[in-house]
Write a protein that binds this DNA or RNA. Structure first.
Lengths: 348, 348
DNA sequence: GTTTGGCACTCCCCCACCACAAGTGCCACC
DNA sequence: GGTGGCACTTGTGGTGGGGGAGTGCCAAAC
């Protein structure tokens, strides 16, 4: 068994140099190239020996016998661990981010701009999501009659996310009935999670069904119409910058599958949820995305959750090729995640 | 000067055959191939003569001296005119469309699903837009205090489009002030276009500025915060199916530019507006998109507007390669446009 | 013992070359 | 006007060799 993880200083330096060279050139790196750029003036032969060790240890691969070496997932993992927390976000990036996000109070707008700026700063796609999960607490609802049997339902949650939805009822309700129903819900359920609210409301409707009650009748109508659905996920998932991937991904078919997956925004949301559903605040770098999503081979996820009171309420990420500027991207994600956290907590 | 447009029956048959063959194979079509598939049993030599005429008349091009012929924009134009209005939408497509769009009353959901189904039915991207232009009439507004100096503004227009926007004020207003302001606007401006409303409101605020008035003060606050902005275009523009283009477009750089343009949804909206802003109901096929958008060379737009009382309130389109199944796409766009029209008129 | 230079070997990449297929234009003939 | 024939053009696909980059290993040097 090779001595994985037990590599010395020289090995580490060379490994880092190989990874960085590969990231910038995209071509397998050979001993000669490395020897030339290395200040320590090591000869190609020495480097070859070290490289052989690194292959044994699982950090490098050779596309074929007489080609240079290419970093493995394990190498990227090592590289990311090693650089994480090192750099701060550059002033230029700070300006760009501040300029883009300045003045956004509205969550959806923030998400949209965040995904955009992430795609600009990285060589991948930017993703920004506000969770509209079962744990999202109600602030208030508002119903507005829009015509015969048609009602606009606006649900505002404590995290500032607004759901508006046009509903069709089975029987007509006038605006007074709707206001009464909204008041009832707001008075009784403010602060409840949407799913709990729905369950309890269903129970109460069931209980009162025997005796005729105007309010309960209105509530039942609204309940049946789905006016309280908190699950309109596609509206709060923003994915931008797919054009970045065109330049990066070689294989055409692979590219098409990838874009197809990214267009299914719910899948992207699931991916982030799977890897970021944690109480940790830190940026997480996931290498080896193909285990969860086969068409994402050779892609990594750099993401961070946003919390309100210890609960995850949103997340943002860059999904890009393994060959990317990790330091730059990690600091950018980290910086924006802080802003996101702040925004959510202001709104809470 | 070549006798453009003065082509006989035989020429037309051959031109149509060339276009259809080119659309299905993607390769320049030669006289021999055509002679073999043509039932009339014309010899390659005859076809060659006809082809030479068609080149003179501007319908065909040759990539190089000894290659087959390729249709020009003019040829596609002819082809589309010739087939338009011929076919009806197939039962299978009807099922797919109905299944996807069934039960959507909410405009945004309809737009999203429409763009999706258009991308499925064609080999291009599907676009669906609800106009939030200056001509959009107010139904009512609703303001809700969300915290210190923060207000959620919900603007509902007659076409059923909802704008919700979180605003930050310069000074705090309580909910009563907000309700008074909303009532004032609803009582005075229902049915006005948003831009007229804003202009008139600005005028009134200016007029009353001298004397202190609580209502006017609230209105001014809201006015300044931009709560009445009707221009949140990105939320009502849906573009889906970019992965379709990966398979179609050869040139990598071109593909990247194209995707980049399609990601700027406002530009897509402008494009539709430019070509569809008309009182005509019919599907419009725009060939030669590169005049307006250079990166869309070799792409066509097949779109239709949706009207309410003679005014354009929405539009939908497919943007796809010149090499596409026109008949299929045109009928699909036409069919969905009718549904869109119906939905808008129900909501009106 | 580590580092280095040397050397034979492997493999990919590029390019020149050639034959071939598909297509054309034109001309003579029906 | 349609057709067959023929010489010419041009992209394509396959082959083969030269060159470059890199490797592994060994023996010598430090």
């Amino acid at each position: 068994m090779p001595n994985v993880g037990q590599i010395g200083l020289r090995e580490r330096e060379i490994l880092t140099a190989i990874i960085e060279t590969y990231i910038s050139t995209g071509e397998p790196v050979g001993s000669r190239t490395l020897s030339r750029q290395n200040k320590d003036g090591l000869s190609p032969a020495t480097i070859r020996n070290v490289m052989a060790d690194l292959v044994d240890a699982g950090f490098l691969d050779q596309p074929h016998t007489s080609a240079g070496r290419v970093p493995t997932a394990q190498a990227y993992r090592y590289y990311v661990d090693q650089i994480s927390g090192k750099a701060v976000v550059s002033p230029a990036d700070q300006d760009l981010i501040a300029g883009t996000l300045q003045g956004t109070v509205d969550i959806q707008e923030f998400l949209q701009r965040t995904s955009h700026v992430l795609s600009l700063l990285s060589s991948g796609v930017g993703v920004a999501i506000a969770n509209t999960g079962p744990r999202n607490a109600l602030d208030h609802v508002y119903f507005s009659r829009q015509g015969d049997k048609k009602v606009l339902a606006v649900v505002v949650t404590r995290s500032g996310v607004v759901h508006d939805r046009m509903m069709r009822l089975e029987e007509d309700l006038n605006q007074t009935d709707l206001d009464t129903a909204a008041n009832y819900i707001n008075d009784n359920f403010r602060g409840w999670t949407i799913s709990n609210l729905k369950a309890e409301l269903g129970r109460r409707i069931e209980q009162e069904r025997s005796e005729y009650d105007r309010l309960m009748n209105s509530l039942e109508e609204l309940y049946k119409s789905g006016a309280l659905a908190a699950d309109e996920p596609a509206r709060n998932i923003f994915v931008e910058g797919v054009s970045n991937l065109v330049a990066k991904e070689e294989d055409r078919e692979h590219l098409r599958d990838l874009l197809r997956t990214l267009e299914e925004k719910e899948r992207v949301a699931e991916l982030l949820a799977a890897y970021l559903d944690t109480r940790q605040e830190a940026v997480r770098v996931v290498i080896g995305l193909e285990e969860a999503v086969p068409e994402m081979r050779n892609f990594v996820l750099i993401g961070a959750p946003a919390h309100v009171g210890g609960e995850m309420r949103g997340s943002l990420a860059v999904i890009g090729p393994t060959r990317m500027d990790y330091q730059h991207t990690i600091t950018a994600v980290s910086y924006i995640a802080q802003l996101f956290d702040k925004l959510l907590n202001e709104n809470a």
